[in-house]
Amino acid sequence: MKADHPQAVNEAPIDFSAATMTEMKRVIGLFPEGKQKSAILSVLHLVQDELGWVSVGAMNRVAQILDIEPIEVYEVATFYTMFHLDPVGKNVLEVCRTGPCQLVGSDDLITYIEQKLDIKVGETTKDGMFTLKTVECLGACGYGPMLMCKYHFYERLTKEKVNEMLDAMREASKS
Protein backbone atom coordinates (compact mmCIF):
# COMPACT_ATOMS: atom_id res chain seq x y z
CA MET A 1 0.00 0.00 0.00
CA LYS A 2 1.47 3.28 -1.09
CA ALA A 3 0.80 5.68 1.76
CA ASP A 4 2.56 8.64 0.21
CA HIS A 5 1.08 12.04 0.56
CA PRO A 6 3.40 13.97 -1.76
CA GLN A 7 4.66 17.19 -0.30
CA ALA A 8 2.52 20.11 -1.37
CA VAL A 9 3.87 23.25 -2.93
CA ASN A 10 4.00 26.13 -0.51
CA GLU A 11 1.63 28.99 -1.21
CA ALA A 12 1.37 32.52 0.04
CA PRO A 13 -1.33 33.10 2.66
CA ILE A 14 -4.65 34.02 1.10
CA ASP A 15 -7.28 36.43 2.35
CA PHE A 16 -10.76 35.49 3.48
CA SER A 17 -13.94 37.49 3.07
CA ALA A 18 -14.81 40.14 5.62
CA ALA A 19 -17.75 38.05 6.84
CA THR A 20 -15.51 35.02 7.39
CA MET A 21 -12.95 37.13 9.24
CA THR A 22 -15.65 38.54 11.52
CA GLU A 23 -16.90 35.07 12.32
CA MET A 24 -13.33 33.86 12.91
CA LYS A 25 -12.80 36.66 15.41
CA ARG A 26 -15.98 35.66 17.18
CA VAL A 27 -15.05 31.98 17.57
CA ILE A 28 -11.52 32.87 18.68
CA GLY A 29 -13.05 35.21 21.27
CA LEU A 30 -14.94 32.29 22.80
CA PHE A 31 -11.69 31.10 24.38
CA PRO A 32 -9.58 32.78 27.05
CA GLU A 33 -6.70 35.09 26.17
CA GLY A 34 -3.74 33.10 24.88
CA LYS A 35 -5.84 30.01 24.13
CA GLN A 36 -6.75 31.08 20.62
CA LYS A 37 -5.43 27.81 19.21
CA SER A 38 -8.50 26.13 20.70
CA ALA A 39 -10.55 27.76 17.96
CA ILE A 40 -8.60 26.04 15.17
CA LEU A 41 -11.31 23.52 14.23
CA SER A 42 -13.98 26.22 14.14
CA VAL A 43 -11.69 28.36 12.01
CA LEU A 44 -10.92 25.52 9.60
CA HIS A 45 -14.66 24.84 9.22
CA LEU A 46 -15.11 28.51 8.33
CA VAL A 47 -12.32 28.27 5.75
CA GLN A 48 -13.98 25.25 4.19
CA ASP A 49 -17.40 26.94 4.25
CA GLU A 50 -15.94 29.76 2.20
CA LEU A 51 -13.60 27.90 -0.18
CA GLY A 52 -15.19 24.47 -0.30
CA TRP A 53 -11.86 22.98 0.73
CA VAL A 54 -8.74 23.80 2.74
CA SER A 55 -5.77 24.91 0.64
CA VAL A 56 -2.16 25.39 1.70
CA GLY A 57 -2.51 29.14 1.29
CA ALA A 58 -5.59 29.10 3.50
CA MET A 59 -3.79 27.09 6.18
CA ASN A 60 -0.85 29.47 6.10
CA ARG A 61 -3.26 32.34 6.69
CA VAL A 62 -4.92 30.43 9.54
CA ALA A 63 -1.48 30.04 11.14
CA GLN A 64 -1.06 33.81 11.05
CA ILE A 65 -4.53 34.43 12.43
CA LEU A 66 -4.01 32.03 15.33
CA ASP A 67 -0.36 33.04 15.81
CA ILE A 68 0.96 29.49 15.48
CA GLU A 69 3.39 27.73 13.14
CA PRO A 70 1.95 26.51 9.80
CA ILE A 71 2.91 22.90 10.64
CA GLU A 72 0.55 23.04 13.63
CA VAL A 73 -2.28 23.79 11.22
CA TYR A 74 -1.22 21.04 8.77
CA GLU A 75 -1.02 18.53 11.61
CA VAL A 76 -4.55 19.31 12.72
CA ALA A 77 -6.10 19.62 9.26
CA THR A 78 -4.72 16.23 8.20
CA PHE A 79 -5.90 14.51 11.39
CA TYR A 80 -9.57 15.43 11.18
CA THR A 81 -11.36 13.82 8.27
CA MET A 82 -13.97 16.51 7.68
CA PHE A 83 -11.44 18.78 6.02
CA HIS A 84 -10.96 18.36 2.30
CA LEU A 85 -7.32 18.95 1.43
CA ASP A 86 -7.96 18.83 -2.29
CA PRO A 87 -10.51 20.72 -4.37
CA VAL A 88 -13.98 19.16 -4.39
CA GLY A 89 -17.23 19.60 -6.26
CA LYS A 90 -19.94 22.06 -5.27
CA ASN A 91 -21.80 19.37 -3.38
CA VAL A 92 -19.81 16.81 -1.43
CA LEU A 93 -21.94 13.76 -0.77
CA GLU A 94 -20.55 11.97 2.27
CA VAL A 95 -22.23 8.59 2.54
CA CYS A 96 -22.02 6.70 5.83
CA ARG A 97 -20.63 3.22 5.23
CA THR A 98 -20.33 1.96 8.83
CA GLY A 99 -22.03 -1.16 10.29
CA PRO A 100 -25.51 0.04 11.27
CA CYS A 101 -25.98 1.81 7.93
CA GLN A 102 -24.54 -1.18 6.11
CA LEU A 103 -27.19 -3.39 7.73
CA VAL A 104 -29.88 -1.29 6.11
CA GLY A 105 -28.35 -0.93 2.67
CA SER A 106 -25.55 1.64 2.52
CA ASP A 107 -23.58 -0.58 0.11
CA ASP A 108 -26.45 -0.41 -2.37
CA LEU A 109 -26.85 3.31 -1.81
CA ILE A 110 -23.19 3.93 -2.65
CA THR A 111 -23.41 1.79 -5.79
CA TYR A 112 -26.58 3.57 -6.85
CA ILE A 113 -25.06 7.04 -6.50
CA GLU A 114 -21.92 5.88 -8.32
CA GLN A 115 -24.03 4.72 -11.24
CA LYS A 116 -26.31 7.71 -11.16
CA LEU A 117 -23.44 10.22 -11.23
CA ASP A 118 -21.12 8.00 -13.29
CA ILE A 119 -18.25 8.45 -10.83
CA LYS A 120 -16.51 6.25 -8.27
CA VAL A 121 -16.14 7.00 -4.59
CA GLY A 122 -13.53 9.74 -4.22
CA GLU A 123 -14.23 11.27 -7.64
CA THR A 124 -15.92 14.46 -8.77
CA THR A 125 -18.38 14.74 -11.64
CA LYS A 126 -17.05 16.39 -14.81
CA ASP A 127 -19.30 19.41 -14.32
CA GLY A 128 -17.83 19.92 -10.83
CA MET A 129 -21.28 19.57 -9.32
CA PHE A 130 -20.79 16.53 -7.08
CA THR A 131 -18.01 14.78 -5.21
CA LEU A 132 -18.80 11.38 -3.76
CA LYS A 133 -17.07 10.27 -0.56
CA THR A 134 -17.67 7.56 1.97
CA VAL A 135 -17.33 8.38 5.64
CA GLU A 136 -17.48 6.51 8.92
CA CYS A 137 -20.45 6.65 11.28
CA LEU A 138 -22.23 10.00 11.32
CA GLY A 139 -24.41 9.27 14.34
CA ALA A 140 -27.65 8.71 12.48
CA CYS A 141 -27.71 4.91 12.72
CA GLY A 142 -31.45 4.56 13.30
CA TYR A 143 -32.21 6.59 10.21
CA GLY A 144 -29.95 4.92 7.66
CA PRO A 145 -28.94 4.63 4.98
CA MET A 146 -27.96 8.26 5.00
CA LEU A 147 -25.53 10.83 3.76
CA MET A 148 -24.39 14.29 4.73
CA CYS A 149 -24.00 17.26 2.43
CA LYS A 150 -23.26 20.80 3.59
CA TYR A 151 -23.90 19.79 7.22
CA HIS A 152 -27.37 18.57 6.28
CA PHE A 153 -28.37 14.97 7.02
CA TYR A 154 -30.34 13.16 4.32
CA GLU A 155 -31.80 10.12 6.07
CA ARG A 156 -33.66 6.86 5.29
CA LEU A 157 -32.62 7.27 1.70
CA THR A 158 -34.29 5.43 -1.15
CA LYS A 159 -33.54 5.65 -4.87
CA GLU A 160 -36.44 8.06 -5.29
CA LYS A 161 -35.21 10.28 -2.48
CA VAL A 162 -31.69 10.29 -3.89
CA ASN A 163 -33.01 11.34 -7.31
CA GLU A 164 -34.99 14.19 -5.77
CA MET A 165 -32.07 15.22 -3.61
CA LEU A 166 -29.64 15.34 -6.53
CA ASP A 167 -32.07 17.35 -8.65
CA ALA A 168 -32.64 19.84 -5.84
CA MET A 169 -28.89 20.21 -5.29
CA ARG A 170 -28.29 20.78 -9.00
CA GLU A 171 -30.98 23.41 -9.02
CA ALA A 172 -29.65 25.16 -5.92
CA SER A 173 -26.06 25.15 -7.17
CA LYS A 174 -27.00 26.78 -10.49
CA SER A 175 -27.69 30.14 -8.93
Partner: peptide
Protein backbone atom coordinates in the same frame (compact mmCIF):
# COMPACT_ATOMS: atom_id res chain seq x y z
CA UNK B 1 -19.22 27.71 25.05
CA UNK B 2 -20.09 25.14 22.40
CA UNK B 3 -17.34 24.25 19.95
CA UNK B 4 -17.06 21.71 17.11
CA UNK B 5 -14.76 18.78 16.41
CA UNK B 6 -13.53 18.01 12.91
CA UNK B 7 -14.25 14.36 12.26
CA UNK B 8 -12.46 11.97 14.61
Amino acid sequence: VVTPGGGA
